[in-house]
Design a protein around this nucleic acid. Sequence first.
DNA 1: ATACTATAATACGAATTTCGACAAACATCA
DNA 2: TGATGTTTGTCGAAATTCGTATTATAGTAT
Lengths: 158, 158
Amino acid sequence: MEELFRRSLYSELDDIDYGIVRALQENARLPFTTIAKELGVTEKTVRMRVQQMQDEGVLSLVGIVNPVKAGLNVQSFIQIAVEANKLDDVVAALNDIVEVRLIVLTTGDYQLIIQILVRNYEELAQFLMNKLNKVPGVTRVNVINELKIIKSKYKFIR
Amino acid sequence: MEELFRRSLYSELDDIDYGIVRALQENARLPFTTIAKELGVTEKTVRMRVQQMQDEGVLSLVGIVNPVKAGLNVQSFIQIAVEANKLDDVVAALNDIVEVRLIVLTTGDYQLIIQILVRNYEELAQFLMNKLNKVPGVTRVNVINELKIIKSKYKFIR
DNA sequence: ATACTATAATACGAATTTCGACAAACATCA
DNA sequence: TGATGTTTGTCGAAATTCGTATTATAGTAT
């Protein structure tokens, strides 16, 4: 027994959930009372729904920093080819590396694509030489530097 | 005259900014009073810093939905090769497509990498055939499907 | 150094929001 | 129908936010 109780385990979000999500997508600090008024439910209901969605990993309310404004000037996608039977180990190793902000299993010539954030090219070089290339099972990497982020939106629901 | 006033235009974040950002990264709804107490400044100061950082695109406080939980089951990276003189037009066209959540100018064999979110493969096919392949200037695309997101963190600052 | 200007921080009370305990409504199922 | 578990609503106390006014700080010109 791991979880106490849950609604529908969020097999599907209902209209209220979508209303809440749509509102919070724009502004994570929007008062629950405002959202409640808009949706015609109580503040308590909104509060509980948000709590549940957060608990179940449906919704995250986070502050996101513009990496460049915080000195993380070099961002790269890195495609990684992995020995078939070492995938778990490689993933586990990547998970522990602080520079790595995204790990995705993909189709294509490489098994993984990751995204990293570092301060400068020196740090990128360090990452590649001292960290990534020392992970056993990595056979080939393809570094794609991000020259400019033209669009990045977190508003997934319309 | 476009902006009324601003501090240092955030050439650099100071300790208070970093303190605020570090706190809000974890929880975008953390009370400003709590952050203020922790940093030894007034709630008003925190409130003003947050407002400024938001105004200048340094910080966003957003709700992020788990796409899969919201029915967006197919996520892909797509690398796009573009005719040299058509880059602006292609970018402009991509910007208007709702499925596109990320557009990055990159080094490598392709000029752009984008990320898209759609409900299913039917929608992916529609996107590729009816939208992407009809953008003038696109010469070659490489679709990389995301099979599983293993790690995705928004906490950039440590 | 002094005055001037602009920006940032503080103090603080009113308005609003959050929170928690309890009760009511609702659904499911035996 | 009754029993159980879950969600929603009610409501008052506690905490937070917000706006105004005041003070502090920094930079600049005189």
